[in-house]
Design a protein around this nucleic acid. Structure first.
Lengths: 167, 167
DNA sequence: TATCTTTAGTTGTAGCTTCAAGTAAAAATC
DNA sequence: GATTTTTACTTGAAGCTACAACTAAAGATA
């Protein structure tokens, strides 16, 4: 389903597009590891582990169905299932079958897990600030939100982050 | 080395920062998989495999030292070494010890590898356009380049993409 | 109400990434 | 010129992710 080569849809990218593309690719390659380092050191948690726990700790009643948790962490159900199993083994979350619909598993953060996230949050916020927001001015932050949401929308028009209107 | 809580450096993020943060995190989580799908289907190549081969094919004499290739793909030498070994096993690259400095290994794309990338490039460009640039207007593209370069600069001030001046 | 389809999640496995440790050559220091 | 340090990788193993196949419950259809 490829369009033919034409001036309107050129084969490669313009100079501006290439600069943006390389910057985006480098960012997506480097940022996760840079964000994870401190979490790994402090608590042997991956960035994804942290996000799973953070999403649960922010949820009302500290519980979410696996599907909803997968949506909020942009993960497949398979990936999430493996990780929640691991976190359960560490005593940070629990799993329970939903009463009304036995297909649904609800994950709940434990007191230990909640305490861990509470203790880790300041460190993680500092990492995020240091790597991202300290590098950007106010206009950049607004632009980043706008652009990021557009890219996410292109991949998943119903993505969780789009439920909240743009600020 | 954490700063104390204060109004100047608040504990969590502002509403604008949170929107930008969630958009960035979702993008870095979803985009690599979305970019990789077509490459995986068409040629059993990961996105990183593709980038390695693409960087080699763009290099003069189709050869780069492992360190330079690692820099251009934002990868660790370890990661690159494993992947180049695999690609060598598939006949897509070759490795040779540098004559002047025996510590240096130079990776070279083979004719087969170069042909593969040439054939795959239009597909990949279409994927990149569809996922990224079709979602953005001209201003977004300029903003993305500017913001991405700032974030990369914060992680690695000497990063390869910064050698090229901003357009 | 029996069957079919869809939804929600789990599991096994292959392959990829990271980390720590190791090798060997070159450069620096003594 | 002998030792030490640094540079440029390579390697093995542990853990993570993606994919395909599977289970089981709920909803739809007949």
């Amino acid at each position: 389903m490829m369009s033919p080569m034409s001036e309107l849809r050129p084969r490669w990218l313009s100079e501006e597009e290439r600069a943006a593309w390389l910057a985006l690719l480098s960012t997506t390659t480097l940022l996760p590891g840079a964000l994870e380092g401190p979490l790994q050191q402090a608590a042997k948690l991956s960035l994804f582990d942290y996000n799973v726990l953070a999403m649960l700790s922010e949820a009302s009643s500290r519980t979410l169905p696996m599907s909803e948790l997968a949506a909020r962490t942009s993960a497949s159900l398979s990936r999430l299932s493996h990780v929640v199993k691991k976190l359960q083994g560490r005593g940070l979350v629990e799993r329970a079958t939903h009463a009304d619909d036995a297909r649904v598993t609800a994950a709940t953060i434990t007191a230990v897990g909640a305490e861990l996230i509470r203790d880790l949050a300041p460190l993680h916020v500092e990492t995020v600030r240091g790597l991202v927001f300290d590098q950007l001015d106010r206009r950049d932050v607004a632009d980043l939100a706008r652009i990021g949401r557009k890219i996410v929308r292109g991949m998943d028009a119903g993505h969780w982050i789009l439920r909240t209107p743009a600020p």
